[in-house]
């Protein structure tokens, strides 16, 4: 009798245990990174295109101080407040004592060196599409940046989002290194795809999310409510945006729209980053956006 009553409980425990085991934080295959040597110059391009500094410099930092990745900027969302951590090369306060493979697990799989999950406010769901060489180049470049000993501040999240283990299930649903655009036709579109879908993580704001906070890729780049609650992030797919390729590339360089209004909000740092990339990269983004199917 007792055995009979316990059976469902045992099954439940098995399922729960299995789910936790299946969703435990994943790490990269270290062997893939063992023989890689990073190129700091290529890494700087990855760093700028990925917009790392835009979230990780100290609040209010200007110019050169934006290369000190001490963290501290806050991001208000419906889940609570996220605070960007220190990712400067300081061994104590930052990530200076990490190994390349640990860095790769963090950036592409959202797994910390201590084996816990990162929240997807860190856009590893986009960076997961990066090649190991890109990650190695980025790592090498970031080690050349100034160190900061400022301690990282904790996030301030509402229950149940405060439970990190629950992110395993979320990742099982939404962390995929599949590209949204399949089979880009030429090198320009391939570069545009890498910039939009992986590095510049455009989809994080411009694509709507479903009820669980995962990107709805069937409505890729079609616009979404602003996560900070103020208005709407515009769509940039062909059915939403009628700018020419030249208009898009020029906007990413100067911040001026086709009617010569100036960029605002969170696009300001994005344009600042794109302005530092080669013209061919801005044109690749424009070509990619125009090549998307109208929806």
């Amino acid at each position: 009798m007792l055995r009979k009553a316990l059976a469902p409980l045992a099954i439940l425990l098995l399922i729960a245990g299995g789910a936790l085991w299946l969703t435990q934080p994943a790490t990269v295959d270290a062997a893939e990174y063992d023989d890689l040597t990073g190129d700091p110059e290529r890494g700087e391009t990855v760093f700028i295109a990925a917009g790392c500094a835009s979230c990780h410099y100290a609040p209010g930092a200007e110019d050169e101080a934006r290369l000190i990745l001490s963290g501290g900027q806050s991001f208000e969302t419906e889940f609570g407040t996220f605070r960007a951590p220190n990712i400067s090369p300081s061994p104590e306060a930052g990530i200076g004592n990490w190994m390349l493979a640990e860095f790769a697990s963090a950036v592409t799989l959202g797994t910390a060196p201590d084996g816990s999950h990162y929240y997807p406010a860190f856009p590893y769901t986009a960076y997961t599409r990066l090649a190991p060489q890109d990650v190695a180049d980025l790592w090498t470049h970031m080690q050349t940046l100034p160190a900061s000993d400022a301690a990282s501040e904790p996030h301030d999240l509402r229950f149940p989002y405060s439970i990190r283990a629950s992110l395993g299930g979320w990742k099982a649903l939404y962390l995929s290194d599949d590209w949204v655009m399949q089979d880009p036709e030429d090198e320009t579109l391939e570069r545009g795809r890498q910039l939009v879908e992986a590095l510049a993580h455009c989809g994080e704001c411009h694509t709507p999310r479903d009820a669980l906070g995962g990107l709805d890729t069937s409505r890729w780049l079609s616009g979404a409510p602003n996560p900070s609650g103020d208005g709407q992030i515009p769509g940039i797919s062909p059915s939403e945006l009628d700018w020419s390729e030249t208009d898009i590339a020029y906007y990413l360089e100067t911040g001026f729209t086709p009617d010569y209004d100036s960029v605002g909000g969170h696009m300001v740092p994005v344009v600042n980053n794109f302005a530092q990339l080669p013209e061919s990269d801005r044109q690749a983004v424009a070509a990619y956006l125009k090549a998307l199917p109208a929806n």
Partner: peptide
């Protein structure tokens, strides 16, 4: 022209960002 306009655009944005309400 492009780089010079980019610098000017930064100055426009810096102010619009804080002191101009969004259009919608």
């Amino acid at each position: 022209l492009g780089p010079a306009l980019g610098q000017l655009g930064n100055a426009c944005s810096a102010c619009h960002d804080e002191y101009r309400a969004s259009a919608n």
